[in-house]
């Protein structure tokens, strides 16, 4: 499994044709306490850059854009009842969606962990 990162602070873990997507620890720390999540319906086709989900803290609502194109194969609906998990384990149990990857070459435009860490240093 390889994990990629986007400049919009999402992580994309790839295993075969499937990508698991969530937001990074940095993103959750910037948002503050997450209170609500809106996830896409399973089966929805997302093009890279489409609005995939909405994550809300008390004073902010942020859109999560699809880092890659593909079909939503699973949504982590359990998060809806426990939005606090996004703060507790953003890069593990609090994944948002799983997607069937449409175009693997899009992954090349993402960062690896080292590059992402370097990117965070610049913020």
């Amino acid at each position: 499994m390889t994990t990629y990162y986007s400049k919009d602070h999402e992580w994309v873990a790839v295993e075969g044709d499937t990508a698991t997507i969530g937001i990074t620890d940095y993103a959750q720390s910037q948002l503050g306490d997450v209170v609500f999540l809106e996830l896409p319906d399973v089966g929805k086709t997302l093009a890279k850059g489409d609005e995939a989900a909405v994550v809300e803290s008390v004073k902010a609502a942020s859109e999560v854009y699809a880092a890659i194109s593909g079909d939503v194969s699973e949504a982590n609906d359990a998060l809806a009842d426990e939005p606090a998990k996004v703060n507790e384990d953003p890069e593990g149990a609090a994944w948002f969606i799983k997607m069937t990857i449409a175009n693997k070459s899009e992954l090349d435009e993402l960062m690896d962990e080292v590059a992402y860490k370097a990117f965070l240093e610049t913020l």
């Binding site: 602070h9 306490d33 902010a60 609502a61």
Partner: peptide
């Protein structure tokens, strides 16, 4: 993700 710059802690 697009970050709203109003994000801030609100718990006591």
């Amino acid at each position: 993700m697009g970050m709203n710059s109003q994000g801030r802690l609100s718990t006591p």
